[in-house]
Every structure is written in C-alpha cells, then in structure tokens.
C-alpha cells in the first residue's frame, strides 16, 4: 500500500516535472542557471551550486561552508533545515558528495562508484557492497583518480571521469544511478589556459543525470 502510494507520488512527480519541463521549453533557459529537466527515465540537473566560492584566502579559495541537499525521488533541492531528516539523498559541497546515512544523516542511504557507462548499468550487480559515510571517509570516495573525478594541481581543474556511475541507495532505501557530467558552471570545464578567476569562481556547479527506481528494485 505504502509502496504504491510512493510509486504514484513518484509518477506524479515525474509528470509534474515533465510538464514543468514542457513549460520551460518555451522559455530560453540560461545555460548557466540551475535547471532540472526530465526526459523519460532520465533526469538531468544542471548547475547545482555546491558551496560555491565566496573568496580567496591564505589557504586558497573557500565557500560559505553550506551543503546543497538534493532529493532524487522528488527531483528537487531540499532546504538545509531538513538536513537531519530523510528528505534528501545527496548533499553537495565542493568535491564532497554525501549520502544520507552514517555520519551524514539519519537515512538508510548508501553508495559506491561503478566503473562503466550509465546506459550499460541496467541492474545493480548482486554482489555490490554499498558503503556508508564515515567522515572523513565517504561512501562516494574522495580524492583524485579514486572516485568520480580527477584533479590536476598545475592546471587547477577538476574533471569528472567518464565511465563512472554513482550507484545510490536513497535515504528511503530506493535505488538510483547517477552520472556526474561536469563540475563547472554551464556544464563546461574551463580551458587549461583560462584564468584562475574563471577556474575558481565557475567551479562547484554540478551537472549530473540520474535514473531513480521508485519501486525499490535494483533494475533501471
């Protein structure tokens, strides 16, 4: 009963978002703005700010220290006042992505980084181990070349590694697959020759796409 209600809700949310999407199609979307678009099973989020840079200090650039919370089930940002609830599934700040479990939240979340294409991941392999956050070790591994990104110090650029899928167990125990597309504003990594200003202030804007499986199965 509960399951089907949620399913209906999810479908409603999909339809609602689809309608919203249809509406926004008539409006020119600024490629640098936060935007959620739904196309079939795939939801694409552009320019989700993740503790964007507010200044540069002695220790380098810094943000305000606030996470952006996101719900994969409702395709929307969640207010930070709900950080202690199970309303959110992913929280973004800089290159840290938290899941709602362990040291990060009260939910039933979990995650691991899968190597392969987003489309190629149709069923989560049965022998998969979902990790949970245990700060400073996170389910979605941090570090250049370890999880979903490469970071190059000399050019000061962070690039999302292609062929990496974040397999997510949501706060409510549903499953989703997420592909990070880009870490910079406008879904475009600056050129290596771009100025430090651009590289710093355009960073921490996530573009990603995902498929959320509302029925609780591990098949997408």
């Amino acid at each position: 009963m509960k399951k089907s209600t949620l399913g209906i809700l999810a479908i409603a949310a999909l339809i609602f978002n689809a309608c919203k999407n249809d509406e926004t199609n008539n409006v020119v979307v600024n490629p640098n703005d936060y935007n959620v678009a739904v196309s079939g099973k795939i939801v694409t989020v552009k320019n989700l700010p993740a503790d964007t840079i507010v200044g540069v200090g002695a220790m380098g650039p810094y943000g305000a220290g606030k996470y952006t919370f996101f719900s994969l089930g409702t395709n929307s940002k969640i207010a930070s006042t709900d950080s202690a609830t199970s309303n959110w599934d992913l929280a973004f700040a800089g290159n840290t992505i938290r899941i709602n479990n362990g040291t990060s939240g009260p939910g039933n979340g979990g995650a691991f980084v899968y190597v392969g294409t987003f489309d190629g991941l149709t069923t989560i392999p049965a022998d998969s181990t979902f990790r949970i956050d245990n700060a400073p070790n996170y389910a979605i591994t941090k570090g250049s070349g370890k999880g979903w990104y490469n970071y190059d110090g000399p050019t000061n650029l962070l690039t999302a590694i292609p062929g990496r899928v974040l397999v997510i167990r949501t706060a409510n125990g549903k499953y989703a697959k997420v592909e990070i597309l880009n870490y910079y504003k406008g879904n475009t990594t600056p050129l290596s020759t771009a100025s430090d200003n651009v590289k710093i202030y355009d960073s921490r804007y996530y573009s990603f796409r995902y498929t959320y499986q509302a029925d609780g199965t591990t098949t997408f």
Binding site: T117, P162, E179, N187, S207
Partner: peptide, 14 residues
C-alpha cells in the same frame, strides 16, 4: 575497453 570519453552532452561512452 576500460577507458571512457564523453559525448557533446556530457554523457559517457567507451
């Protein structure tokens, strides 16, 4: 086949 790249829209492929 262990290396991937991105299409113009940012999605990955081999």
């Amino acid at each position: 086949g262990k290396v991937y790249t991105r299409n113009a829209d940012g999605t990955s492929r081999i």
